[in-house]
Computed example of a mutant assay.
Amino acid sequence: MNPPHVVDLIGVTRHYAHGVTALDDVSIGFAAGTFTAVMGPSGSGKSTLLQCAAGLDRPSSGRVVVDGQDLAALGDRRLTLLRRDRIGFVFQSFNLLPSLTAAQNVALPLRLAGRRPGHRQVLESLAAVGLAERAGHRPAELSGGQQQRVAIARALVTRPAVLFADEPTGALDAATSREVLRLLRDLVDGQAQTVVMVTHDPVAAACADRVVFLADGRIYGELRDPRTEEIATRMLHLEASC
């Protein structure tokens, strides 16, 4: 039996001003406990897909269902609650508050939600990314890779149904990128975390279970159990045709 979808986009279109169509009738699902990479040429709609799937942007038409909730049926308050409790998001920039320790940064989403973060819950989230011993360190005392791992721990502290990552290794060197990608892979394999990652890097995408390709706001196929060479070749063909 195939695992259920945690996220479904059904006929999603997103128009912007001046006649720009970022997504054009996109339908795709992301199954529980899987790792999907989304790739495509610049301007293909990758980030817009992620933002619509995460409820950060509302589509012009179509439906987005996350953890059984149709986002179009939710008002702003309920959508905010769903994003806060069931959706994790990691960006290329770490977005850590420099005056807070790693533990305080991780606890921040809970505090903003009006909850009292448990010390054990915060430490468990840091332990999941291998940084329990760095709980008292501030961002300036951490490497780039460690800061990104703190950002991932912060996204995981609410135990989200899905973790979205937008170019999470874009600001890191090759060795540190491998460290972060290995962590994401371990979260999928060891904790059945659902991960959807936008990336431009075929090496990063090869860590996923499948790669979905976008061009001109539409899906142009996918690869299962992808290899770096296959991904790079597919990307060359896509970029040449755009």
Rank of each mutant, 00 (worst) to 15 (best):
V198I: 15
R185C: 02
C207N: 15
V196W: 06
L187A: 08
A205R: 07
R185S: 11
G190H: 01
A206T: 11
T194N: 11
Q191I: 05
D201M: 11
A208Y: 12
A208P: 08
S177E: 04
R178T: 13
D189K: 06
R185M: 02
A206C: 09
C207Y: 15
T199S: 06
V212A: 01
V188Q: 03
V198G: 01
D201Y: 13
V211D: 02
V212D: 00
D209T: 08
R210L: 09
A192F: 06
R185Q: 11
V195W: 07
V195C: 11
V203I: 15
V196C: 05
G190K: 00
M197G: 10
A192I: 09
M197L: 15
V203C: 03
V180N: 03
P202K: 11
T199N: 05
L183P: 00
V211I: 08
L183T: 09
T194H: 09
V188K: 00
L187N: 08
V196H: 03
R210F: 12
R178C: 01
A204L: 13
P202Y: 15
V198A: 05
R178M: 05
A192D: 15
V180M: 02
V203D: 11
C207S: 15
V195S: 09
D189A: 12
D201A: 14
L181R: 02
V188N: 01
V203H: 12
V198D: 01
V195H: 08
Q191N: 07
R178V: 13
M197I: 14
V196Y: 02
V195G: 09
D209M: 08
A206R: 04
A192Y: 02
A205W: 13
V188M: 01
V198H: 01
C207L: 14
P202Q: 12
A204F: 13
V196T: 05
A208E: 09
D201G: 10
T199I: 10
E179K: 00
V198M: 03
T199G: 05
A206Q: 06
R185V: 04
Q193D: 10
G190N: 07
L187Q: 07
R185E: 08
G190S: 01
M197P: 07
A206I: 13
R182A: 14
A208V: 13
A204G: 10
Q193K: 11
C207R: 12
